[in-house]
């Protein structure tokens, strides 16, 4: 029906020798919450910088709200709201002054400014702090203020670059509350990046990005269903022996992960009885988990998102890769 909110073809950005983004293609439909999921350095922020006209693509093209990001910068800027990964509020100014500054920069009609500021402060629950200096805010409050500011001029597309990183679970939940609420009330498309798996599940569709490439793009449910294997974690009296035996008896590559013997296997529940019967090591506890997005990430990239950040994939993860 309507045109895509974001359409990207072969978008590429190189910094000197670093290929930060290596030709990505995707489309985001209006009203969608679209997530970019990937480890540090995957190219998430670089993609956002290009889409919001701050960085010029080395190759490829994209439109945001129907406007070309290189030839129609001003049109793109009028239609987007941004919450950057790093803080961009002015601590010397009050919350209200930060918002007023934004309203003036975006040419929000003067008659509407006060109402609009009131409304966005309500959304993020900062009404009682409006005349406090932002330097006295906690990290979470600053983040909420940035979200309020990003919404102030009624953008059609809102970019959120890791909006919840470093926040406590309550604040994270609250921010997700605002985002869901927003979607219900405003006619808005949300493009967000994260490296929290739990958060990616809130998105309508996610693209997994690793080393500048989109590895896979689909709904969280479809992605999880595509993995097909469950994750089994064991506590045993002798983990090293357990790993050796798993390999010998079942041909399974296991490894210590999060302090437990971990491996992937199809239909985990049915495998557990065989394990007790044949593994000649005393098992203290067993945990079988349905595939999570963590497993999806691992299955498509060969490492967990945290290990990708640490830089070394484990064997058991490779074993999980179908193909």
């Amino acid at each position: 029906m309507s045109n895509p909110a974001i359409a990207v073809q072969g978008l590429t950005k190189t910094y000197g020798k670093t290929e930060a983004v290596k030709g990505v293609d995707f489309q985001v439909e209006p009203g969608e919450i679209f997530g970019f999921l990937g480890p540090n350095g995957a190219g998430k922020s670089t993609t956002i910088n290009m889409l919001c006209t701050l960085a010029r693509p080395t190759a490829g093209s994209a439109t945001v709200a129907g406007h070309d990001i290189v030839r129609e910068r001003d049109e793109v800027r009028r239609n987007i709201g941004l919450v950057f990964q790093d803080q961009t509020v002015d601590g010397y100014l009050t919350a209200e002054m930060n918002l007023r500054f934004h309203a003036e920069m975006y040419g929000v009609p003067r008659t509407a400014t006060a109402d609009r500021i009131h409304q966005v402060l309500d959304i993020v629950g900062l009404q009682d702090r409006r005349s406090h200096k932002v330097e006295t805010f906690s990290g979470g409050m600053k983040r909420r203020l940035e979200i309020a500011r990003g919404l102030l001029h009624s953008p059609r597309v809102l970019f959120l670059d890791e909006p919840t990183v470093g926040l406590d679970p309550q604040t994270r939940a609250a921010i997700w509350g605002y985002i869901n609420e927003l979607r219900r009330h405003e006619d808005i498309t949300i493009f967000m990046t994260t490296h929290y798996m739990e958060e990616a599940e809130y998105c309508d569709r996610i693209a997994i990005i690793d080393q500048g490439r989109i590895v896979v793009l689909d709904t969280p449910e479809t992605l999880k269903a595509s993995v097909g294997k469950d994750r089994v974690q064991l506590h045993t009296v002798d983990d090293a022996k357990a790993i050796t035996l798993l390999k010998e008896r079942f041909g399974i590559e296991a490894a210590i992960h999060e302090g437990q013997v971990t491996f992937a296997v199809a239909s985990g529940e049915e495998f557990v009885p065989r394990l007790f019967a044949d593994l000649k090591v005393t098992i203290r506890s067993v945990n079988v988990a349905r595939p999570s997005l963590d497993d999806v990430f691992m299955s498509y990239t060969g490492s967990t998102i945290r290990d990708a950040e640490a830089g070394s994939p484990h064997d058991w993860m490779r074993a999980m890769v179908r193909r």
């Binding site: 009028r78 003036e104 109402d115 959304i123 629950g125 919404l151 405003e186 006619d187």
Partner: peptide, 23 residues
Amino acid sequence: VETTPRIARVTVPRRGVRHDLRA
């Protein structure tokens, strides 16, 4: 969050001298 009324939309004007002067 639950009781937030629908927010009045505002429109960002096209670029012009007046807008730049406000900036």
